[in-house]
Design a protein around this nucleic acid. Structure first.
Lengths: 357, 357
DNA sequence: TGAGGTCATGTAAGCGCTTGCACCTCTGGG
DNA sequence: CCCAGAGGTGCAAGCGCTTACATGACCTCA
């Protein structure tokens, strides 16, 4: 049981024993000094820090986690990142976590991957997990994990009793649709697959309610996946079938951009013939002509809030039963056909006028 | 020193002791059975798996890492993700790592963050680290880390003796520039800050060499940061100063899109008056008019290769002194003013013709 | 001058796993 | 019928930290 006096794992890195020896103190003191603990004499602390620096000491995260019963890492589960949407969530999440001294372990759950195994493995490596969107982890799995680790969800169906974050969808979608109606549109379709509990589902609901309020009916719903091809395909369909539409609300910008582009290719004027609106305010939305009217969401903030809340839960805070809903903001550009703003443009603000709410 | 017979951390989760007890075997056997080891009798294995399932057992990652001297996690250091570029790298990296059963810990190094501390902390938590681009970790830091952990770099200045991955920049940039020259352009400027060892730096070098080969000189170099405002600003400058240019090679698409948009706003025809080409093939490139001629890079593959190599290094493979360079591919759309392809479009292929190499 | 504090540090017991080695129980061959 | 293997398990020693608790040294005040 006798410790070798100089310890140095073959892997190369110095251990806390080496630092202790070099500084002429015990490992306990090294640990305290490095943790910036209160009760260490300044001279001792100096000696320890010097020794650590000289040895290029990096504490072993696993050992620290095991002894301290805390990994100082948060997990983030996302569906396969494609758009800038998830990238922004990730940036917000990581930045916030990093500010708190926490690492971030990400897990992308593609359709082909087995989320069960991966999520469990993740749970064993972090202090808490945030589940974004319909990342392949289903409610049962999330609920189970949440029984042994703090959990928050974002832009995703709630888990009873757990913290949830959303960006506003339904009301904003209704307002966006109403905006089209005010501009005189009457035969308004929806493009996107409205799944229950999903963002697009909520947008669809808002779209329907605005129509109802105006005494209109949905012209058509194109339940298509959110990929470019869908938008292109639907545009062709509309033209080929001579569908009588004057506006299309799209579940996201990707669909809207593809749709709009193809409509124009086929000679349909946007917004003259058909108005198009999207959702997400992707980069491209401001560069196309006409500029795409869409909805900007505080996505980065969403990620940051989730991370901070998760950290608080790990520290023992109680879950907040009220979901947090972040305001979304309609960005009027040219494609909705309202009082068309001047030349659309990427300039910082003058060309992104009339941001509502 | 006597173990309690039933062990169950207060945190809630069952430990390996609980599983062992329930299955009526030792923890060693549980460990082996769960690791899918060879030397466990089928009946025993069954008993263990059943017990584990019933207790909802999730092994503690830290303990496992400490005992096994391996975290089964890889680190990925990126500069603050903005574009789709880093998102794609991340997807490739995570997917490849995940396939190997490894977790991914990401670290975003913003300009304001202290990379030193964060990178060290990361090093203590993973088996190996991939450094992307000019993520704030400088060469000295990366070199130091690489002395105690396997390290690879991607799209970044090499660290002597370490594995490096790139997408081709210089030759492709030269070909892209030559393409403009063949189309009759003579007064060709460069937009972007060409820093040594950076992607944009290499593109700039290629640009210069193509000009030299053609006996031309660089019209101007606008050394601007890769943000929208730079593009917009430069466009204004060009028009205001009446600069005599007929083509601009941009360091990336973000600059190209902003520049092109603003040029058009100010009445300059693209490509009629000035041709514009970018780099990255962002989503928006295909939706603007004219479509942006740009360069597509196998970014996701870059991430995947880095992850796989890193995993191999962790398993004891020797570093490969030869850097891996992935081919880039010029995507001709309308903005370069060559034999303008028909109506540009997002359609899968017919509208993205003449992909060279 | 000694009891009682206070401060700084050391001692050592784990944290929950993995794994080398010892041990036991069968088999089959000589 | 005995012994050498071989297959299956258990024992127990760590992995590199953190942190109660114990221990001294030194100070204060009656």
């Amino acid at each position: 049981m006798s410790r070798q006096t100089t310890k140095r794992s073959e892997r190369g890195s110095a251990t806390i024993y080496a630092v202790a020896e070099r500084a002429g103190v015990s490992t306990a003191t090294v640990s305290r000094a490095l943790a910036g603990s209160d009760k260490v004499a300044p001279r001792t602390r100096e000696a320890v820090l010097t020794a650590a620096r000289e040895l290029n000491y990096v504490p072993d995260g696993s050992a620290r986690a095991l002894a301290g019963r805390r990994t100082n890492a948060l997990g983030l589960v996302l569906p396969g990142i494609d758009g800038p949407y998830y990238a922004a969530v990730l940036v917000g999440f990581e930045t916030a976590a990093s500010d708190l001294g926490l690492s971030v372990v990400i897990l992308l759950t593609g359709p082909d991957t087995d989320p069960e195994r991966a999520v469990r493995q993740l749970a064993g490596k972090v202090d808490g997990i945030a589940f974004m969107s319909r990342s392949a982890a289903d409610d049962a799995l999330v609920a189970e994990i949440s029984r042994r680790r703090p959990v928050v969800t974002a832009a995703r169906g709630r888990i009873p009793g757990r913290d949830a974050f959303f960006t506003e969808n339904e009301v904003t979608a209704a307002r966006l649709t109403a905006h089209l109606i005010e501009a005189g549109r009457r035969r308004i379709a929806f493009l996107g697959r409205p799944e229950p509990d999903s963002d697009i589902g909520a947008r669809y609901t808002g779209y329907l309610s605005a129509l109802r309020d105006a005494g209109l009916e949905s012209a058509t719903t194109f339940a298509a996946d959110a990929v470019d091809e869908s938008g292109t395909q639907v545009a062709r369909e509309i033209v080929a079938d001579g569908l009588d539409l004057d506006a299309i609300v799209c579940g996201n910008d990707q669909l809207a951009l593809a749709l709009m582009h193809q409509l124009q290719e086929q000679g349909v004027e946007v917004p003259g013939g058909i108005a198009v609106v999207g959702w997400d305010d992707v980069h491209a939305a401001r560069y196309v002509r006409p500029g795409l009217t869409t909805v900007a969401q505080p996505v980065e903030e969403l990620g940051a809030l989730a991370a901070r809340r998760l950290a608080a839960l790990v520290d023992g805070a109680d879950p907040d039963p009220e979901p947090v809903v972040l305001d979304s903001r309609i960005v009027h550009r040219g494609s909705c056909g309202c009082a068309t703003p001047g030349p659309s443009g990427p300039e910082t603000s003058p060309d992104l006028p009339e941001e509502t709410r």
